[in-house]
Simulated scan of single mutants.
Amino acid sequence: MTDETSIVTMDDLDAQAARLCEVESYLHLDEKRERIVELEQRSARPDFWDDGERARAVMEELSCARDDVSGVERARTRLADAVAALQLASELEHGDEADELAAEATAAASELTREIDQMELSSWFTGEFDHGSAIITIKPGQGGLEAQDWTFMLFKMYMKYCERRGWKVTVNDCPPADVIGIDRATFTVEGKDAFGMLRAEAGVHRLVRISPTDDKKRRQTTFAGVEVIPVLPDDIDVEIDPTDIRVDVYHASGPGGQGVNTTDSAVRVTHLPTGIVVTCQNERSQIQNKAACMQILKSRLFELELEKREEALDEIRGPKHTIGFGNQIRSYVLYPYQMVKDLRSGVETGNVASVLEDGDLDPFIIGYHRWATGNTVPDTSQV
């Protein structure tokens, strides 16, 4: 992996070129180029939009294929620019112009590394739902009031991360706690590879810091659990017997304006056979909130059916553990030192603010997927 603090070498660029060739092979670019032509011809037909649902699926596939092809072409251009700049710097040997060209090549190589990392990551997503949207739920675990505050901190971190990725977020439920933080948060993330990326976050997250609610300023350890499930595609239908659900409406307690908070717009759906409860209160009408609840409920019931069918570890959400000591996937330490460390991949950083405040999660998410697929490369233990 190219380090921006040292000058890139031609050997580094040769290694990147080899990685790029592998990515092209993974992505089957020739087939995708042919597919793009086919889909473009289909979308140009006069009757294309007669079936709106099918048309949207075609346009989504076309967009993804174009993104893959343009991403590789952009990386090829960046690689060529880096090689040209480095060759010119070598010919000049010394001087300010040579240093500038070498720095330009190094910066291009660093950006190229990030682009190839992302393309490699996408090629590893082979699950049925990996390229689609995700539903995230964050719940407080051990730690009392502190855990509710920690839940809110994680919620804000993921909002920042989704913003960085350019994903659309719909907050379904985020009621404030009585004293500090929030009781829970459920939100839907729409974007390319959203579920594939975010399933790296499923599990228990541990925070160590000086308690903001303790007058004696003692160190406190708190936990929160993150659940990640896919938004089911339209071609997967989960039937729910209307007699199996109970729908309750109540005043919304979260943000949403005066109209939301003064009417019974919030909805709670209970699936009686399983005991699954879903609440949504951030839309402005009961109809919208109920629709959001039913979408989440269907995804959870589908996941439950997979568990029963396989009688093994849940392949979507991961192993289920108590949200407390010994079960964390990642630790965020603010005191007596500062460090965020993923206990699965070993990726860590001392820049805690970049993670919690800026949502800089890509090193951890990419590191997890490298670890999970066995595609480890040097220098992934530090970010």
Rank of each mutant, 00 (worst) to 15 (best):
T2Y: 08
D3Y: 12
I7Y: 09
D11V: 01
L13C: 01
Q16V: 01
A17S: 12
A17P: 02
R19Q: 11
V23F: 00
L27A: 07
H28V: 10
K32R: 15
E40A: 04
D47T: 10
M59F: 13
C64I: 15
A65Y: 13
R66E: 11
D81N: 13
A82I: 00
E91A: 10
D99F: 03
D99N: 11
A103P: 01
A105Q: 01
A107N: 04
A109P: 02
T126Y: 00
T126Q: 06
E128M: 06
T137Q: 14
E146Q: 10
E146L: 08
M159S: 09
K160H: 14
K168S: 14
T170H: 07
N172T: 03
D173E: 14
D178A: 14
G181S: 06
T188F: 05
E190C: 14
M197F: 15
L198C: 07
E201P: 09
G203H: 12
L207P: 08
V208D: 11
R209F: 13
I210R: 12
R218G: 12
R218P: 06
T221A: 06
P230R: 14
V231G: 12
P233F: 13
I240L: 02
I245H: 07
V247G: 10
S253H: 08
G259Q: 13
T270H: 07
L272S: 10
P273R: 08
G275V: 05
A291L: 09
I296E: 11
R300P: 02
L304C: 02
E307S: 03
E311Q: 12
D314W: 01
D314E: 01
I316D: 05
H321Y: 11
G326P: 00
D342P: 04
D342Y: 04
E348D: 04
V355P: 01
L356P: 00
E357F: 00
E357T: 03
L361Q: 01
Y368N: 04
T373G: 12
N375Y: 15
T376G: 14
D379H: 15
